[in-house]
């Protein structure tokens, strides 16, 4: 029973580490009436202290490296990090740029990668479902 406690109540904190806002808008689109993530008990929260999932977008600019680490440490366990969009997964078009510290998994451990530029809301929802599974496995251990 304890393992299932997390799967229908995920609170998501969204971190933008230098994204162009494309992915961010798709995340908001997943909350709209058409996709309605809230029906699965998922909601966006304003503080990393409340979060179960860190939804990170962007290629991590030099300025954001420290802050991303800090936000990761501020999030209470058990937690899952989702990297949304090609920039976060592989730094995308900013590959080998001088002011980029990413991709995200070089700074914090990433559990789920969602590909796309930007990813469709369906892809983000699919990623969140995988986050449930990951959290359940974490709890079992």
């Amino acid at each position: 029973m304890k393992a299932k406690a997390l799967n229908r109540s995920l609170w998501v904190f969204h971190v933008n580490t230098g994204s162009c806002n494309g992915c961010d808008i798709e995340i908001v689109a997943a909350m709209t009436p058409r996709y309605d993530l809230e029906r699965f008990g998922i909601k966006l929260v304003g503080s990393p202290r409340h979060a179960d999932v860190l939804l990170v977008t962007g290629p991590v600019t030099r300025d954001m490296k420290k802050k991303l680490k800090l936000i990761y440490d501020q999030t209470p366990d058990p937690k899952v990090v989702m990297s949304v969009g090609n920039c976060g997964n592989s730094t995308g078009v900013f590959y080998e740029s001088y002011n980029i510290e990413g991709p995200i998994d070089r700074i914090v451990p990433v559990d789920i990668y969602v590909a796309g530029c930007p990813p469709r809301p369906e892809a983000i929802i699919d990623g969140v479902v995988k986050a449930w599974k990951k959290l359940e496995e974490m709890k079992k251990k």
Binding site: K2, T32, P78
Partner: peptide
């Protein structure tokens, strides 16, 4: 509230689930 925004919305038991989850989380 969700129905008034043309969404389906979470089940009525959602706050109980949220409480159960928060109890399992780390307390910082």
């Amino acid at each position: 509230g969700a129905r008034m925004q043309a969404r389906t919305g979470p089940p009525v038991m959602q706050p109980l689930r949220d409480i159960r989850k928060l109890m399992l989380k780390e307390n910082i």
